[in-house]
Structure formats: C-alpha cells, structure tokens
C-alpha cells in the first residue's frame, strides 16, 4: 500500500487529468485502474482512505469540495502549472527575505534579481 504522501500525489494527478469534479468513489476507481497489471485489486485504496487523503488535500489548499450534492464532488483548486508558479513565487519571496527557511543556489538574493525573476514568472503565467 502506498504511503499517504504518494497517495496525495496520485489523487492530485487524477484530479488534474479530469475535466469534471470527481467523487471519492470515482477517484478510487481511477486509482485502481492504474494499479499494476495482475494486482490491480490489491492496490485499490479503500474509499475511506481516499476521503482521508481528500480532506488532507483540502486542508492544504489543493482541493475544493462542492457540498451542495451528495456524494460531495472534488476538484483541483489550481492547475499543476499554476500551483508550481505559485510555489516558485513563495521560494523567491523567501529567498529575498533571507528567512533562512530555504537556501538557494543562483547567486545570493538581491531585490533586483528576485524582481526580475518574479516578472518572468508573471510573463510565463500569462501565456
């Protein structure tokens, strides 16, 4: 059985790949489908496990839940690219603060440098 972190990743990948919002059961079925041949049944997580993972992802701000219908449907809050761009913003902000939460390689952070990188991120996001 995969650990929770890997499951979170798999769930996010299914949500990113799906156009529509999904229920926990639909997600569980999709997770089964990609299980390795011959042991597909064994690799299917229980629906409760999927719900746990979804609750964690919701808390972390990756997933939104629509509660107006039963069963609840889940979708990714941002696309993978949007999330990655946001993460890069956080990294650059931290680096310019030199908050010591992270250390980075390219040069040492100067306001000019991070401003340019941030502009570049914005340009990429608009495309």
């Amino acid at each position: 059985m995969a650990n929770l972190g890997e499951l979170e990743r798999s769930v996010m990948e299914r949500l990113w790949a799906s156009d529509a919002a999904l229920t926990a059961n639909e997600l569980r079925d999709r997770l089964t489908l990609v299980g390795e041949a011959g042991e597909a049944g064994d690799r299917s997580p229980a629906t409760t496990t999927v719900l746990t993972v979804l609750a964690r992802l919701e808390r972390k701000g990756f997933v939104s839940r629509s509660r107006d219908v039963r069963p609840h449907r889940y979708r990714a809050l941002l696309s993978r690219a949007e999330h990655t761009a946001e993460m890069m913003h956080e990294v650059l902000d931290r680096a310019s603060d030199r908050d010591a939460a992270l250390a980075r390689f390219i040069g040492t952070a100067t306001p000019g440098e991070t401003d340019t990188l941030r502009r570049l991120l914005d340009e990429l996001a608009r495309r």
């Binding site: 690219a81 990294v91 992270l102 980075r104 990429l124």
Partner: peptide
C-alpha cells in the same frame, strides 16, 4: 519541479 526558470534550492 516542472518549471522553466532555472533555480536550485534546498
């Protein structure tokens, strides 16, 4: 990380 800006950090 799937991002085009070249960056490494820990």
């Amino acid at each position: 990380l799937a991002h085009p800006v070249p960056l490494a950090y820990c």
